[in-house]
Amino acid sequence: MDALPSPDEAIEATRLWLERAVIGLNLCPFAKAVQRKGQIRYVVSDATQPLQLHADLVRELERLRDTDAETIDTTLLIHPGVLGDFIDFNEFLEVADAAVADLHLEGEIQVASFHPDFQFEGTAADDITNYTNRSPYPTLHLLREASIDRAVAAFPDASAIFETNMETLEKLGHEGWRKLFSL
């Protein structure tokens, strides 16, 4: 088994991915503003079991709920020690959604997912379009729905983001993706 990164290493790798891929390639046109304002909370879970991750998720959902959006608009819960298998990770998303419901946060906070082995249904594992959702470590992204609503209202055609991202990555290719992180 590979050694787990330190929390600082996991955060640094995630920030680099966010800056070079998510923001740099404009995969999420809404990320730049919250990054620039310092409103992204990076948290590394030391969980090695899904139950431990669930406890960390609940704690972070509560923190996001209880903190002003000007201070923390969104949270990246990075968990390198658990759910390394994409199928297990994908199944855990039901647990994450249930945690949102149990805390009565539906319509207030939602959970998005990023994983090093992310794979859209119907694609090959090495399909470059999967990289739109590939992060250095398994990551749960906790988003305020009010922030999403504001961002979508300000973006002329939010529904086109998915297709634009696919085109961007197809043009970039695997070699271009690797070069993003070798700078």
Rank of each mutant, 00 (worst) to 15 (best):
A47H: 00
Q49S: 12
Q49K: 15
P50S: 04
P50A: 01
P50T: 02
L53M: 13
L53H: 07
H54K: 15
H54G: 09
H54S: 13
A55W: 00
A55D: 12
A55H: 09
A55C: 09
L57G: 02
V58I: 11
V58D: 00
R59S: 15
R59V: 09
R59N: 15
E60V: 09
E60G: 10
L61W: 00
L61A: 09
L61T: 03
R63A: 15
R63V: 15
L64P: 07
R65F: 01
D66E: 14
D68S: 14
D68V: 05
D68M: 05
A69V: 10
A69D: 15
I72A: 01
T75V: 15
I78K: 02
H79C: 12
H79R: 12
P80C: 10
G81W: 10
G81R: 11
G81V: 12
L83G: 05
L83T: 07
D85P: 08
D85V: 01
F86E: 14
D88I: 00
N90C: 07
E91S: 13
E91A: 15
F92Q: 05
F92E: 03
L93A: 11
E94R: 13
V95S: 08
A96I: 01
A96S: 12
A96C: 02
D97E: 15
V100S: 01
A101D: 05
D102H: 08
H104S: 14
H104G: 14
H104K: 10
E106F: 02
G107Y: 06
E108C: 10
I109K: 02
Q110T: 13
V111T: 03
V111L: 08
A112T: 04
S113N: 02
S113E: 01
F114L: 08
F114P: 02
P116M: 07
E121Y: 08
T123N: 13
A124R: 14
A124E: 13
A124K: 13
A124Y: 05
A125C: 06
A125S: 14
A125I: 11
D127F: 00
D127I: 11
D127A: 07
I128H: 03
T129E: 15
N130E: 06
R134N: 12
R134V: 12
P136A: 03
Y137T: 11
Y137I: 05
Y137D: 10
L140N: 10
L142T: 06
L143F: 06
L143E: 06
R144G: 05
R144V: 13
R144Y: 08
E145I: 11
